[in-house]
Amino acid sequence: MSDTIEAGPHIGSVVRADAPPAIVMDKVNKWFGALHVLRDVSLNVALGERVVVCGPSGSGKSTLIRCINRLEQHQEGRIVVEGNELTDDLRSLDAIRREVGMVFQSFNLFPHLTILENCTLAPIWVRKMPKAEAEALAMEYLERVKIPEQAKKYPGQLSGGQQQRVAIARALCMKPKIMLFDEPTSALDPEMIKEVLDTMVGLAADGMTMVCVTHEMGFARQVADRVVFMDRGEIVESGTPTDMFETPKTDRLKLFLSQILRGH
């Protein structure tokens, strides 16, 4: 299942050498109760860079990206997103959430709103956009994820893959500079994974800064500038997809790759 899409040719990095950092994480630590879930995690993501985070369950990869838009609060270290440091200050939090879009494993569409309303909600209430403009924008993105004809339906009437594409369109409607994906294909049936991954590849080709938690190795090979491997709360190894998958240095990554390839 880890190679649901054929690893096409790498779509080529657009990261310039002098690109400003989009995300800076410096020695971030976090605990759930007494459990140490992020251990001195340091990770820089440049503007336009695509990073895939992988690792076994419980490795802290989801917690890591949820810290970036403060759905979880880190307890030590610094996180700077687009020049804004994450603090308790609500204004910096507002600024960051406006620039960072997020796609969840379980879609989290709003069941009481139509697809179109799901997409226009944040532009209207956060970006203060006129409704007509927000709707035009939403239709543009819905067309991009190839489901404009579903705009008047409710989430419950769509398939999982369609829902996840709506969730991507919903996040894009805020015109974010960075997109976070938290295992976007894990809750999907195999035949729907491809449609979502295709959408994500398209997004990458447009130069979006992306941080994806995923085990889709084909996707990583095709898109990622860098793969980060986490285990038990720490970053064990990182590098280009080719280096990571063909010449893993640590035993832990070797073990992980062998388990993934066995088709877990």
Binding site: G101, F104, N108, A122, W125, A167
Partner: peptide, 21 residues
């Protein structure tokens, strides 16, 4: 569900707006 709060907050809505909308 908790995911509704998270999704709405990730979109930049403030807590009172999440509650209302």
């Amino acid at each position: 569900q908790q995911g509704q709060w998270e999704a709405a907050e990730a979109l930049g809505l403030r807590r009172p707006q999440v509650l209302k909308l």
